[in-house]
């Protein structure tokens, strides 16, 4: 990897959301991630880019796949990775996010990865610590690495993102994945649609740079990418939609509904899936599904993000100014 052509310098100290990124910032991260994919596919997967650096994963919400993806990314770059799981921390004893942050900060990590149920938690943390912060999902606000890995998956499969039609389907209202994807796909020139029952759409959705559809048939018509979202179980028992079977009937992705999309349309899902709720098993495991690729790209994108944030050209001491 020392022979790698030098990438431009990434201009931000944190990755809190896609909103702060320019199209060229996004392209840079995707380019770096392409390289990281190659590393992950070698038999020798460990590099020394982040040797001596400390990464702390602070997960206030349980998330096996995102946390292990960040952990693996850090380890493949040679960083020392520590997982702070909420169950065993002082969070349970009522310590506030900021007090926890200050404590961790005193341990002088180089990068803090945070997942929290409250929107804005990552930004709040970033104000209080001296290291780089990566938002691994904050409430219904943003989940930037998910949008980046989705974009990488699409770009590698389709060769581009501009002018593709992407339909994001399901619980848009509560989804940080949807918000980050809407921002990123618009930044790179895709045509973005959302498809959902109106109870699962946020206020002002039509002003968010998307076309809004309430039926899968219309929303998926001619789509190049169909991106499904997870629907939380407590939201499908009468509060937002009347029942699982009614939701699957109208909004679950099955072979019939997928016919409306282009024949070569990609099927995506951020996981974990509710099979038979938002997506039929035959589709999730079918030929158009790139759900497993998304998981692989997740590790690569997170490696790329952390390498870019801790670029030694900008940040020789490991403590951002």
């Amino acid at each position: 990897m020392n022979e790698r052509a030098p990438f431009p310098l990434y201009p931000h100290r944190h990755l809190l959301g896609i909103k702060d990124l320019s199209p060229s910032d996004i392209e840079l991260l995707l380019d770096r991630a392409d390289d990281a994919v190659a590393i992950s596919r070698q038999s020798e997967k460990k590099t020394s880019t982040l040797r001596g650096r400390t990464q702390i994963n602070l997960f206030y919400e349980a998330s096996t796949r995102t946390q292990s993806s960040f952990e693996l990314a850090g380890k493949r770059l040679g960083a020392d990775v520590m997982n702070m799981s909420v169950a065993s921390s002082s969070v349970k004893k009522g310590e506030t996010l900021i007090d926890t942050a200050m404590t961790l900060n005193a341990m002088r990590p180089d990068i803090l990865v945070i997942r929290h149920a409250s929107a804005g938690a990552a930004a709040l943390l970033a104000q209080k610590v001296g290291c780089s912060v990566v938002n691994a999902g904050d409430g219904a606000h943003e989940h930037p690495t998910q949008a980046l890995l989705d974009a990488l998956t699409i770009r590698r499969a389709k060769g581009k993102i501009a002018r593709l039609t992407v339909a994001i389907c399901g619980d848009i209202g509560h989804s940080r994945v949807a918000r980050s994807n809407i921002l990123l796909l618009n930044a790179l020139g895709a045509r973005v649609r959302v498809v959902a029952p109106s109870t699962l759409l946020p206020a002002g959705i039509s002003a968010m740079g998307v076309e809004v559809f309430n039926t899968m048939k219309e929303g998926l018509h001619g789509a190049d990418v169909v991106m499904m979202l997870r629907l939380q179980r407590e939201r499908m028992q009468g509060a937002f939609v009347p029942s699982v079977r009614e939701y699957f009937r109208y909004y679950g992705l099955d072979a019939e509904k997928l016919k409306a999309a282009r024949d070569d349309a990609l099927v995506m899902h951020p996981g974990p899936m509710n099979r038979g709720v938002e997506i039929a098993s035959e589709i999730a495991d079918g030929p158009q599904s790139v759900i497993q690729e998304q998981v692989e790209m997740g590790v690569a994108v997170r490696m790329a993000v952390m390498e870019a944030l801790l670029d030694p050209r900008r940040n020789p001491e490991g403590v951002a100014g």
């Binding site: 909103k19 929107a119 804005g120 904050d138 943003e142 946020p202 959705i205 968010m208």
Partner: peptide, 15 residues
């Protein structure tokens, strides 16, 4: 306040 601004912030709105 419920509206576009709250939606981007991912915060639940009050109509």
């Amino acid at each position: 306040n419920e509206g576009l601004f709250a939606s981007w912030l991912g915060l639940p709105g009050i109509p």
